[in-house]
Design a protein around this nucleic acid. Structure first.
Lengths: 230, 230
DNA sequence: AGAGGACTGGTAACGTCGATACATGTCACC
DNA sequence: GGTGACATGTATCGACGTTACCAGTCCTCT
C-alpha cells in the first residue's frame, strides 16, 4: 500500500470514527466497531494509529482542523478586542457544534496536550499578542490565555450538561463579556501601534512606579527614547 | 448480613475505591481491583451498588459529602456577596483537593446529574437566593447558577490541565472576580492601570524592533516583566 | 525468467474488563 | 432436626484493547 493510499485509509477510518462518535456516543467507539465501519480488520487500526489513543488523537486533530478550515482567522476590521471576542466565540461554537469531539478533547485534564489542543491555543495566542501590542491587555499574556480558555471550557461543558430546554444563550454572552472585562482594558494603554507608541506610553507612566532602581530606570528611559525615535 | 453491616461494607468499598482512584488513577478502578482492595469478591460490588456506575455515583456522593462536612456553610458576617465568593472558592477548592473525584463528577457533561452534583447545586442555589433577596443579583437566578458553575468548572479543569509549574493562582482570583462582577451588582474592584499595560504592549511589540542589541533587549524584557507583575 | 526476501494484510488468540448464572453454604423458624 | 430463604463463593460469558503469527504479494537480484 502506497503512502498515498495509506493516508486515504487513515482519513476514511477517522471519518468513520467521528461518525460513530457523534451518532452513538463515546462508548460505541471500539476498535472493532471502527474497523467494520471503515471496512477493515481490527489490527489495521493499530498499524495505522499505533493504539486507540493515537486514533482518538488523530480524530481530534482532524475534527478541529476541519472546523477551522471553514473559518476566516485573519484579523478583522474592528480591532483586536473584537478579534478576541470572535476567537472566543469560535472556540465555543466548535464545542457546541461537536459536543462529542469537544468532550473527547477537553473533558479530561489528565489527557496530555494533543496537537489539536495546541493548535487551538496557537490561534488564541496570536490574538492575545496583538491585543497586548495594541495596549489592550490587562493581564499577563499567559494568564489571559488561561482565562479565555477556562471561560470557554466552562461555558461549553456547562452548556452541554444542561438539559436542552434550560439552556439560556445569555450564559454564553455573559461569560464572554466577563472574559472580556477580565482580560482587556476599557481604554488602550497606547494609542499608537508598534514599539514606538508603546515606548512613549510607558515613558509617560514610568515615574510613578517603584519596581526598578534609580539606575535601572535611568537606563530604561534611554532605551525607551531610542525606541521612540527609531 | 444485617443492614447495619451492609452499610459498613458499602462504606469500606467506597473508601477503597477513592483510595484507588486518587492513588492510581481512573483506569485503575476496576470492579476486580476494588473488590480485592475491599477484601471481597467481584460480584459483591454488584450486590451492593447495582453496577459500576452505581459505585462511582456512591463514591462521588461520599467524597463530596465528606468534603462539605468539614466546612461551615452558614451565612458569614460579611454579607451575601462574600458568601457567594466563599461558595465559589469552596467549589474550586474541592476540585483542586480531589482532582480525580472532580473529573469523575464534572468532566463528562453526558453523565446525568448525580446526587452529589445536585447537592453542590443546592448549596449554590441557597446563596444565590439570599443574594437575590438582598438585591445584589444582576441576572436571573438560574443564569447566575449557570455562570457560577461554568466559571468554577472552567477554572478547575483548566487549572488541572496546566503543568504544575505554570499554574498561576491569579487564574483563580481573576475568574472569581469576573464571576462576581457578572453576577452581582457590586462595583468591580478597579485596579490602577499604571505602567503595566504600556509595559505589556512594549513587551509584545519588542521582537519587531532593531534599535536595541540582543543583550539590551534581554535585560529590557526582564524589567518589563517586573513592571507588569508589580 | 526464476528464486529469494521484505513487507503488507488477515486470522487467531491472549489477558482483562463489566456483568451474571449457578452452586454452595448458612441461619432462622416451624 | 428438617426445611426453606437468603447471603456468599465459583465459574463463566461476551466484549474489549492489543498482539503474535501466518499467508500472500511484490520487488529485487542473479
Amino acid at each position: 500500500m502506497s503512502p498515498r493510499d495509506q493516508e486515504q485509509t487513515r482519513r476514511r477510518v477517522i471519518e468513520a470514527t467521528i461518525e460513530l462518535l457523534t451518532r452513538e456516543g463515546r462508548d460505541a467507539v471500539t476498535t472493532r466497531a471502527v474497523a467494520v465501519a471503515a471496512g477493515l480488520q481490527p489490527p489495521a487500526i493499530y498499524r495505522l494509529f499505533g493504539d486507540k489513543e493515537g486514533l482518538l488523537e488523530a480524530v481530534a486533530e482532524h475534527g478541529f482542523a476541519t472546523f477551522l478550515a471553514g473559518k476566516n482567522l485573519d484579523p478583522g476590521p474592528h480591532g483586536p478586542v473584537d478579534d478576541l471576542e470572535a476567537g472566543w466565540d469560535l472556540a465555543v461554537e466548535f464545542g457546541l457544534a461537536n459536543p462529542a469531539l469537544y468532550v473527547l478533547m477537553y473533558a479530561d485534564p489528565a489527557r496530555p496536550a494533543s496537537p489539536a489542543f495546541t493548535a487551538g491555543m496557537e490561534v488564541l495566542m496570536g490574538r492575545i499578542r496583538r491585543l497586548a501590542a495594541a495596549g489592550w491587555l490587562r493581564v499577563d499574556e499567559h494568564l489571559a490565555a488561561a482565562i479565555i480558555h477556562a471561560t470557554a471550557r466552562g461555558a461549553v461543558l456547562t452548556w452541554l450538561s444542561l438539559p436542552e430546554d434550560r439552556r439560556d444563550p445569555a450564559l454564553l454572552t455573559t461569560l464572554r463579556e466577563a472574559m472580556l472585562t477580565a482580560v482587556t482594558t476599557r481604554e488602550p494603554a497606547t494609542q499608537e501601534a508598534g514599539p514606538a507608541g508603546a515606548a512613549r506610553a510607558l515613558r509617560a507612566a514610568l515615574p510613578e512606579q517603584t519596581a526598578l532602581s534609580e539606575g535601572e530606570r535611568g537606563l530604561l528611559e534611554e532605551w525607551l527614547d531610542r525606541l521612540t525615535h527609531e
